[in-house]
Design a protein around this nucleic acid. Structure first.
Length: 886
RNA sequence: GGGCUCUUAGCUCAGUUGGCUAGAGCGCUUCCUUGACGUGGAAGAGGUCAGAGGUUCAAGUCCUCUAGAGCCCACCA
């Protein structure tokens, strides 16, 4: 063992950093759009620059890295384009929190200072996160690192906005939006989450009606009562009737409205509406052309319409309003246990107050896109590409979820009132008479006309998903070309080599939780701008939950696993494999420390296999000259061939867990426990070296650091990196010789079993003339832990019943008697196998309907079972007849 | 209200188009210093695949229903 290069224990922390640096230096991660190889590409979902990476990021980095490394091994030119996201709202919420803690706010420090501070924050985050990606072994092409606020990407955002505006797909309008008074911005429908709350439900007298509400504070301006047109209780009231009613701040004139949106079974079947602060009410008002009045201001306080309550925050005003209505005799009843949902902003958890505001929207229903020769709306294109199979979603059940979301999709509100993000490329100016002019363009307008004030850019920014939606192609635009404003967006696409080579990307790998936010919107924007789908396959992984199966959450800091805490102790490879082991697409997994432990052991196992082979082969590294001689040699090669084919096929089909499982058992069971042990009798040194190389390659996508460390330490690669090597076809083997080893395994297993059961150690195995046994006597002796394996003319002792070869263990009859019971059990088990097989073959329908090869297989099984039963019976007879010697 | 997923060994989970005696990791029992690995090796124990019905020569796998767990979407004043 002296002079070995591989030290006794694998300590990942000692190697990982240097190995990563070596890869980067080697340039194997850098893609070449001009390569004649088949291209393969993945856009890395850009993590939000909000601090550090989570275990969920570790999962996606692992999955994508496996795909990319596997693609390289199969001889493809693979691009994995990394990047980060400015995460407008999420980052904005963090900075505003910081400011609040410092006792200030964004208005006090101003827009520029706010942006400067934000840039510093995300800059720090980015450095941390890129370091974490490297620590996971991510083989990304760092020469192409992108950021959603890069100039080139910003240009793509603006160009897309302008194109959509010119096509009439982007419009500005007064619509009801989800307003967050805390962050002072609106958010899209998808960013609203609902939380169940116990509240009170009040019923008030309103003229001749009774109306129910959980929100009395919105009721000041109510002047419409709405009921279902078919509600017989209110048949005497006609649509448009008016009446006088005493209300919070005095008498009002109310109008009767009949609308089918009202559920007659809920409450009294009558409601008043507040169109300014409720989505459903807004729609009713729109249908009937009713007035809308703002009751609550954008900071969550009541407006002058509330009279004496004006200026009060909602929570304070509510009980006082109820009190006042009660004192006027208008409160009919109060129900205490009313369960209803309150709307919150997913970011920052601020209460959402619907408001009508002038905002920018993407029209998803306007049919202005030429798609496959038809005029389609954005919605229709989104449906068509998945329905027609241009895009495949894995697992397939998410296609249903996707369609359901699109069916319910409303126009997408893309403007935000926060400062961090892509500013809306729209400018306004007014003339001295107050006439307004709008300019929409990628670059600010330069003309100045007399009588007009200066152009002012829209203060709002775009929803962060608007820029993310362009990610697969905006990142492939050549940054140099993007500075040339004489080129159109189409020119940029056509002239950018990366776009031409790598788009559509091969696969989008991301979590199911952002199927709507991101995946759907990439499809929307990319098909529209480029005429291509953004990716061919979508692979959706599940969430990594805490050990107790619940979500990891900041409110339970102990539940959060930080990859950087795991890696130094266990190695990135163990973490990677733990994250894919036993995990299926779209299903969540729970974090388990024992999985990580198991995989550290696995890494150690492979390390020791390498050490052993290094020890045996010494400097002999002539792997090219390897060829099989022993039965075991042929057997392990056929196993390797099968494993390689299975793993490769499984990876091609996104079956990561199965690929891993095959690899694990090939290495541990077949290679280490059987082949290496068997080879110790007479090592085939070149073949051992060959096998190590093959196994390092096969394992590399899963455990890149470990395999590269072994490769480099042994310096087998003449300065090449394992990460740059391609898979090769497995060395050929003789299948008949391979099967011989299967038979030897059967014999050895039975020997082990009997020895263990009878506690009879150091016995001799007898066999009659059989080349298989005589050629492999040493192997059987070693693996069966026998004293000797000896050829005899006629054997005595305990006869082996699992093999058709005639073998006996030299065990004295007293000891052997203990095995008689075992033999009886074996006999009945074998008999029931035979019964079952015979019954199956006796079934005419089976023989008639089942495929021929299945039936043949059954016949063969029956034949073999009968042969073995014969051996058992013979042996039992001997047992019953014997008294002294066997 | 609509939809999805899960229920398989003590625990955590695989099981691709239906086809040998249903698997893995961890845990458990017994034995073993065998030329790399005790982070190891060998031999085991442990499951009526949630329940009921159906389709089929054949069902953990397909269909229907039931029970339990989780999730998504919509949202009623």
């Amino acid at each position: 063992m002296d002079g070995m290069k591989l030290p006794k224990a694998y300590e990942p922390e000692q190697y990982e950093h240097d190995i990563y640096a070596l890869w980067e230096k080697s340039g194997v991660f850098t893609a070449d759009p001009h390569s004649r190889k088949e291209h393969f590409s993945i856009s890395m979902p850009p993590p939000n620059e909000t601090g550090t990476l989570s275990i969920g990021h570790a999962l996606f980095l692992t999955l994508q890295d496996i795909m990319v490394r596997h693609a390289r091994q199969k001889g493809k030119d693979a691009l994995w384009l990394p990047g980060t996201d400015h995460a407008a709202l999420a980052v904005n919420a963090i900075i505003e929190n910081q400011l609040a803690e410092e006792g200030t706010n964004k208005h006090e420090i101003g827009r520029e200072a706010f942006l400067e501070r934000t840039r510093n924050f995300v800059g720090d985050s980015r450095e941390t996160m890129l370091g974490q990606m490297r620590a996971m072994g991510a083989s990304a092409d760092w020469t192409r690192l992108r950021y959603t606020l890069d100039n080139a990407l910003n240009r793509c955002v603006n160009e897309t906005f302008v194109k959509m505006y010119n096509d009439g797909l982007i419009y500005r309008g007064h619509r009801i939006v989800n307003w967050d008074p805390n962050l002072e911005t609106n958010v899209s429908d998808d960013e609203v989450i609902y939380q169940e709350e116990q509240g009170r439900f009040y019923t008030f007298k309103y003229g001749p009606f009774q109306i129910g509400t959980a929100r009395p504070e919105t009721k000041f301006g109510d002047k419409y009562v709405v009921m279902h047109p078919d509600d017989a209780r209110y048949a005497q009231y006609k649509h448009g009737d008016t009446f006088e009613a005493e209300w919070i701040n005095g008498p009002v004139t109310a109008t009767v409205i009949k609308d089918e949106a009202v559920d007659p079974k809920f409450g009294t079947g009558v409601m008043t509406i507040t169109p300014w602060h409720d989505h459903t009410d807004f729609e009713i008002a729109e249908r009937h052309g009713l007035d809308k009045e703002q009751i609550i201001d954008f900071h969550g306080k009541l407006l002058p319409v509330a009279g004496e309550f004006a200026g009060m925050p909602i929570a304070e005003a509510r009980p006082k309003i109820v009190e006042k209505l009660a004192s006027k005799g208008l409160l009919v009843k109060t129900e205490g246990n009313y369960r209803h949902n309150i709307a919150l902003n997913e970011r920052g958890k601020g209460m959402i107050e619907p408001q009508i505001r002038l905002q920018w929207f993407v029209d998803v229903n306007k049919p202005v896109i030429d798609w496959k020769g038809k005029r389609c709306s954005l919605k229709e294109v989104m449906q068509s590409v998945v329905r027609d199979g241009d895009i495949r979603i894995i697992p397939g059940r998410f296609e249903k979820v996707y369609f359901h979301w699109i069916n319910n999709l409303r126009d997408w509100c893309i403007s935000r009132q926060i400062w961090w993000g892509h500013r809306i490329p729209v400018w306004y100016r007014t003339d001295t008479d107050g006439k307004e002019e709008t300019y929409v363009g990628d670059q600010p307008p330069t003309d100045e006309s007399e009588g007009w004030h200066e152009w002012e850019q829209d203060p709002d920014t775009l929803d962060t998903w608007f820029s993310s939606a362009l990610w697969t192609w905006s990142t492939l635009i050549d940054p140099g070309l993007a500075q040339d404003y004489s080129l159109s967006l189409n020119d940029l696409l056509e002239k950018s080599p990366d776009f031409q080579a790598y788009h559509p990307t091969s696969v989008m790998e991301t979590g199911w939780d952002i199927l709507f936010f991101w995946v759907a919107r990439m499809i929307l924007a990319t098909t529209y701008v480029t005429g291509q789908v953004p990716f061919k396959d979508v692979y959706l992984h599940g969430l990594v939950r805490a050990e107790d199966g619940k979500k990891m959450s900041k409110s339970r800091p102990e539940s959060i696993i930080n990859p950087l805490d795991v890696i130094p102790k266990y190695g990135a490879d163990a973490l990677r494999m733990a994250l894919i082991m036993g995990v299926t697409p779209g299903n969540d997994q729970s974090w388990g420390w024992d999985k990580i432990e198991a995989n550290r052991h696995f890494c150690n196992k492979l390390w020791n296999i390498a050490r052993y082979i290094e020890d045996i082969t010494g400097d002999k590294t002539d792997r090219e000259g390897a060829s099989p001689t022993a039965a075991a040699d042929n057997w392990i090669l056929s196993k390797l061939q099968r494993a390689q084919k299975k793993i490769s096929g499984d990876l091609d089909n996104y079956r990561f867990s199965e690929a891993y499982d095959t690899l694990y058992h090939f290495i541990w069971d077949d290679l280490a426990d059987w082949y290496i042990e068997a080879s110790k009798t007479e090592p085939n040194r070149q073949l051992l070296a060959y096998l190590l190389e093959a196994v390092l390659l096969l394992t590399h996508p899963f455990a890149p650091f470990l395999t590269e460390t072994i490769w480099q330490t042994l310096s087998w690669g003449n300065d090449s990196v394992l990460a740059g090597r391609e898979l090769r076809d497995t060395l050929g083997s003789d299948s008949r010789r391979a099967v011989e080893f299967d038979e030897l395994q059967t014999i050895i297993k039975e020997v082990r079993y009997i020895i263990k059961a009878l506690q009879a150690y150091g016995v001799t195995l007898y066999y009659t003339d059989a080349a298989l046994l005589s050629n492999n006597a040493e192997v059987v002796k070693r693996l069966g832990r026998l004293k000797a394996v000896t050829r005899v003319r006629d054997g005595t002792g305990l006869y082996l019943t699992n093999t058709r070869y005639s073998c006996w263990l030299d065990i004295d009859s007293d000891t052997a008697q203990a095995y008689a019971k075992e033999l009886a059990g074996k006999h009945s088990a074998q008999q029931s196998v035979i019964d079952r097989l015979e019954a199956r073959l006796a079934n005419e329908d089976y023989v008639k309907n089942a495929p021929g090869d299945i039936v043949d297989q059954t016949r063969k099984q029956l034949h073999e079972a009968k042969e073995l039963l014969g051996g058992i019976e013979q042996e039992r007879k001997r047992f019953s007849g014997l008294s002294g010697r066997v």
